[in-house]
């Protein structure tokens, strides 16, 4: 009986820290986009992106608020929210997907790994299946995720009025920069 109790305690003490590191959380992630045409360069940054990464399964979820994108010019920010993204109607954007080459990433060993992520990206209430490459860096207890890809506004039913069409690129370059820490609660 005593042995059973000790064994249980031992198992619990081993399992507990591992369980605590099941999920990794990033609360202040940075996603920004860049559009360049001869007429205008547009850049906007969002520093309040939330994301959860589960190394054991490769599940990754992102969520951000459209209104958190900050532009240099107030007028651009207004147009982005009111005319293009309709943020009053569709306040959020999210991504739900999986790391598909999970076997090639050793989350227990420091280093930089190439990652391929596939999943559903929802912007402006329109969902598209996407597959993108990025890098995952394991650094002590932290996991750093970086990715860069292009998005075409028309794929997400974002209509650009003809008056400003020449000022906005056909594809917008999106950069993702996240730092995850083990989630404890």
């Amino acid at each position: 009986m005593k042995t059973a109790i000790y064994l249980t305690l031992l198992l619990v003490s081993i399992a507990a820290p591992m369980q605590g590191q099941d999920k990794f959380l990033c609360k202040n992630g940075h996603i920004w986009f860049y559009s360049e045409t001869p007429l205008e360069t547009i850049e906007a940054h969002n520093y309040t992106v939330a994301s959860v990464l589960t190394p054991a399964t490769g599940d990754v979820v992102f969520q951000l608020l459209i209104k958190s994108f900050k532009f240099e010019r107030a007028l651009m920010e207004e147009h982005f929210n009111e005319n293009f993204m309709e943020s009053a109607k569709f306040p959020k954007s999210d991504f739900k997907g999986k790391i598909v080459n999970l076997k090639e990433i050793d989350f227990s060993k420091n280093g930089s790994y190439k990652a391929v992520v596939e999943g559903d990206l929802t912007i402006h209430n329109r969902t598209n299946r996407i597959r993108q490459n990025g890098t995952i860096e394991v650094k002590g207890t932290a996991i750093l995720v970086k990715a860069k890809f292009d998005i075409a506004p028309k794929d997400y039913d974002i209509e650009i009025p003809s008056a400003v069409r020449d000022k906005i690129a056909k594809t917008v370059a999106v950069t993702v920069d996240m730092t995850y820490e083990p989630y404890r609660k």
Partner: peptide, 14 residues
């Protein structure tokens, strides 16, 4: 700027 809710309800202010 709204509310996110991946882990807990979280209202965002910037």
């Amino acid at each position: 700027t709204g509310m996110q809710g991946l882990i807990e309800p979280e209202v965002i202010m910037i």
